[in-house]
C-alpha cells in the first residue's frame, strides 16, 4: 500500500459496474479496477502510463495500438481490458532490456524504418512475433506479415528492410 492516496469521485455512479483485472504487463503483474467497457489500449496508456502503445483508427485497421497478447499481436484498441484478465501483454516499453535495444529496435533505426514514429511500436511488435514464427523470411512474407499495420511516412520499403535486417541479427545471435 502506498502512502499516496487516490482521490475518488464524491458521487460515484452506483450503476457503473467495476471489475478487478490482473494483467502481466511486460513481465510485471498489474492489477486495476476497470469499467467493463474500458479498452485495453486505454488501460495501458491512461491507467498504467505506458504511452508507447498508440491509438489510431478505433477500427482494428491501422495497427498503431498493436501489443503482444500471450505472444500474439493483437489490436489493443478493440480488445476490452477485462478480456486481458489473467493474460500476458508485451508493449514496446518491454521490448528493450535495461541497457540494450532489441535487435528489431536497432534495425529500425539503422535502416531508417521510421519517420514520425507513430506506427513504429506496433510495427516492431508485429515483427517480433512474426520473426519468432519465421526467423528467415522472404521479402514477400515480411510484407504480408506487416499488412495489418499501416504507415503513412515511409512507404514500407525501409520497414521491410528493417525487419529483414533484424531477422539476420536474431539468427546470428541464435547461432552463437
Amino acid at each position: 500500500m502506498s502512502s499516496l492516496y487516490v482521490e475518488v469521485s464524491p458521487e460515484p455512479a452506483s450503476d457503473v459496474p467495476v471489475r478487478r483485472v490482473t494483467i502481466t504487463v511486460n513481465g510485471e503483474p498489474r492489477t486495476a479496477d476497470v469499467e467493463p467497457r474500458l479498452l485495453l489500449a486505454h488501460l495501458l496508456r491512461s491507467g498504467f502510463g505506458l504511452t508507447g502503445t498508440h491509438t489510431g483508427c478505433d477500427t482494428t485497421n491501422c495497427g498503431v495500438c498493436t501489443v503482444l497478447f500471450d505472444g500474439t499481436p493483437i489490436k489493443s484498441c478493440t480488445m476490452l481490458a477485462v478480456q486481458a484478465d489473467g493474460h500476458e501483454v508485451l508493449t514496446v516499453e518491454g521490448l528493450a532490456g535495461a541497457s540494450e535495444l532489441h535487435p528489431i529496435q536497432e534495425a529500425f533505426k539503422d535502416e531508417h524504418g521510421l519517420q514520425c514514429g507513430f506506427c513504429t511500436p506496433g510495427m516492431m511488435l508485429t515483427a517480433k512475433a512474426f520473426l519468432e514464427d519465421n526467423p528467415d523470411p522472404t521479402e514477400d512474407e515480411v510484407r504480408w506479415a506487416l499488412s495489418g499495420n499501416m504507415c503513412r511516412c515511409t512507404g514500407y520499403q525501409n520497414i521491410v528492410k528493417s525487419v529483414l535486417a533484424a531477422a539476420e541479427m536474431l539468427r546470428a545471435k541464435a547461432g552463437n
Binding site: E93, F108, G117, F118, M124
Partner: peptide
C-alpha cells in the same frame, strides 16, 4: 529515433 523506438515519443495524447 532514440525515443520513438523505445515508445518514448511525446505525442499530444
Amino acid at each position: 529515433d532514440n525515443r520513438f523506438i523505445r515508445g518514448k515519443g511525446n505525442y499530444i495524447d
